[in-house]
Simulated scan of single mutants.
Amino acid sequence: MSFALGMDAFSIGLGMGMLELRKKQILKIGMTIGLFHMIMPLLGMTLGKQISVYFGGIATMVGGFLLLLMGMLMIRASFSKDKESFITPVGIGLLLFALSVSLDSFSVGLSLGIYGAKTAAVIIMFGFMSMVLTWAGLLMGSKVQQWLGSYSEALGGCILMAFGAKLLF
């Protein structure tokens, strides 16, 4: 299950990796997403069965909307004459990115809380796998960015929008 959730982070990291990122930024992004993939399911597991049906759908919708928005902004920035990227994974942008990627972990945490899963094992595996897979996606995205040049940011935005649409529909 941690691998499946981490694959979303990988795919989204692949899109975000098409921005020009330094290795230090890639390290920080992976660690932040890993941390959010620990916090969100922990919150979900503690809330438990009472609200799983209600909040699970809301978390997915919010995550999908945020990814669609970020994708649209990346595509818009790719066609802008100003080469400064509008979406940058630093500060608030990094927190919003990590939150949007980890919202599905909240829903999974709600379900796991119902079944009484081992909290520590779940949290550690979710965080570790999402961190490693995010790094892999970001590094692969940077290689694709080198091949595609100026079109890479638009492709990255399309990837983010596709995952946002997948969450919404």
Rank of each mutant, 00 (worst) to 15 (best):
I159M: 01
I39C: 02
I51K: 07
A154M: 10
L68G: 08
G13K: 01
G91V: 09
I123M: 04
L96G: 07
G149E: 00
L155T: 00
S85Q: 12
A121P: 00
G157K: 00
F97K: 11
G109N: 06
T60S: 11
L94I: 03
V122D: 01
S111P: 01
T119K: 01
M70E: 04
A121C: 02
K28F: 13
F169V: 14
L168D: 15
G56L: 06
M1H: 11
T119A: 03
V144R: 00
L67P: 04
L19M: 12
F169P: 13
K24F: 00
G91D: 06
L168F: 13
A120H: 06
S52N: 09
M74R: 13
L103T: 13
G116D: 04
S107G: 11
Q50V: 15
S85A: 13
M72L: 11
T32Y: 15
L73A: 08
P41R: 08
L14K: 14
H37Q: 12
V101L: 09
M16A: 11
L42G: 06
Y151S: 15
S130I: 13
G137H: 15
C158L: 14
F79I: 03
V144A: 01
Q146P: 00
I26S: 10
G141A: 08
I39T: 08
L43S: 10
L69Q: 05
G156I: 09
A154N: 02
G113S: 14
K49I: 05
I12L: 07
M161N: 09
G93P: 14
V90M: 05
S11Q: 07
F86N: 02
Q146T: 01
L139C: 02
M125D: 12
M31P: 10
